[in-house]
């Protein structure tokens, strides 16, 4: 890898975009990569656009922020409108099409439009799993990250939740696989 692989996850505060980036960074670290994650947080805990930066490399990463992402995910319309500046010519873009209705601004990047919200609600019966659908799709594009390794990271991250409710593990797996299979 000549450069770190750079990921941006963006959306509304409280949607869990920070967790998405954090989990992917953690999973990569578990698989032996150097990773850095930093949230680009605003003054309020809630109500602002929320952005997270993650980088994965086989060498130590010099700086937590960057200007252009290789993989870019937007979970809200405001995120598309405000964070599109972080795209380079070949950035892979993914949006949750249930929340992002207008992709004109990023049309030339041919975004993957995934209705993760509807999938989570109707196929899985648990709206919060939409993030897992998105992560499944994202993982297709992160170099060097195996699905098994990712599953292990999830085990550690959700240890407490899985202990309380074991059915959540299966649900997450299902959601992940749906997202993973949606992108070709």
């Amino acid at each position: 890898m000549k450069e770190p692989f750079k990921i941006i996850a963006s959306g509304e505060g409280g949607q869990g975009v920070l967790s998405i980036a954090k989990i992917i960074a953690y999973a990569a670290w578990q698989q032996g990569f150097h990773t850095i994650y930093v949230p680009y947080f605003s003054t309020e805990k809630r109500g602002g656009v929320s952005v997270a930066f993650a980088q994965i490399w086989d060498k130590p990463i010099p700086f937590p922020k960057f200007h252009k992402a290789d993989l870019w995910v937007a979970l809200s319309q405001r995120a598309v409108d405000r964070i599109y500046d972080y795209l380079h010519d070949d950035t892979v873009t993914i949006v949750n099409s249930f929340l992002v209705k207008d992709v004109t601004r990023i049309k030339k990047w041919k975004p993957y439009e995934i209705d993760a919200t509807t999938i989570a609600k109707e196929q899985l019966g648990k709206p919060r799993t939409f993030n897992m659908v998105i992560m499944g799709a994202m993982l297709k594009f992160v170099p060097g990250l195996s699905q098994e390794g990712f599953a292990k990271a999830l085990e550690k991250t959700f240890k407490d939740k899985y202990e309380r409710d074991a059915s959540l593990r299966e649900l997450n797996e299902q959601a992940f696989n749906i997202g993973h299979d949606l992108v070709k």
């Binding site: 960074a25 670290w29 150097h34 990773t35 850095i36 994650y37």
Partner: peptide, 9 residues
Amino acid sequence: GYLAKMMGE
């Protein structure tokens, strides 16, 4: 703030 909030090894 970056150092405080970033995660890494």
